[in-house]
Design a protein around this nucleic acid. Structure first.
Lengths: 142, 142
DNA sequence: CTAATTGCTCTAGTAGCTATAGCTTCAAGA
DNA sequence: TCTTGAAGCTATAGCTACTAGAGCAATTAG
């Protein structure tokens, strides 16, 4: 049996985050000690590690909720899990593409900076006028 | 003089967002019409375009606030603006590096998926055990 | 036994908006 | 001139995924 602190240490997840996961239903409510403290079975560590790992890979909590649901029914096809991972991969690739465009733009902006006064600062000027842009970074918010 | 709707259209910024920017002090409170509606001078368009553009490049609102402060004093050195842009470039590069590691990991995960049942699904398995990872995507949250 | 640590609940805050409700004002057509 | 529909107003709440703090109770080490 693990206290919430030990569990957090073992899974490298902060204690308030564990309580938050419980609150939103990602982790089941554990039994309590006589003094009302949470006591986790060892299986909770697996589940929490799963969540942490998926978060590190950028999966949103709702996707993780689905994946956990799937892993609770090991007999079904894994097509759904595959689809979730695939869409996550797509999302990551999109983000990389957008960030690369931003990188190029920022680099260009800085290369032109004359380090003079604000009035001839390219950074300020470029930001003020989209026409200065080499790339079309349309609707992309980072 | 522009109504808030025209301004939003011209700058491609949604109306509630403009009001939000006013609320947090990024845009000055404009004059009002007899019927209490906001009326913007043309200069507001420049300022709003500046903000939108900087947001597209990933600058956080606080950095934009600083940049706007700088551009209000065109006689000073542009070193500060340069530094803000430089740190933004660094942040973008960090994000790219982290996302590339995630991309590789997700790709590897999917390549191994046998498309069988959940019980031998690599996606679920890899997520459950960090030891399966080729990369060390330590503390990186996307 | 005491002091330090850890745990508890509850509330509020973070970024950057977005959405809703319920109302008023404005502009254009009949 | 009247009317109708669009656009505007304020205020509040919601979104993601946590994080921080207050004020208290329980546990553990010495």
């Amino acid at each position: 049996m693990l206290t919430i602190g030990k569990l957090g240490q073992a899974a490298r997840v902060k204690v308030p985050t564990i309580r938050y996961y419980e609150q939103i239903g990602l982790l089941p409510e554990p039994d309590r000690s006589a003094g009302n403290q949470r006591l986790y079975p060892n299986t909770a560590l697996d589940r929490l590690a799963f969540i942490r790992h998926a978060r590190e890979l950028g999966f949103p909590l709702e996707a993780i909720r689905e994946l956990l649901g799937l892993s609770d029914h090991p007999d079904q096809s894994c097509a759904a899990a595959d689809a979730i991972a695939r869409s996550q991969l797509q999302a990551v690739r999109n983000r990389i593409a957008r960030l690369k465009a931003l990188e190029a733009e920022l680099q260009r902006m800085l290369a032109q900076c004359a380090s003079g006064t604000i009035s001839d600062c390219r950074v300020i000027e470029v930001l003020g006028d989209h026409a200065h842009c080499a790339h079309d970074h349309g609707q992309d918010l980072t």
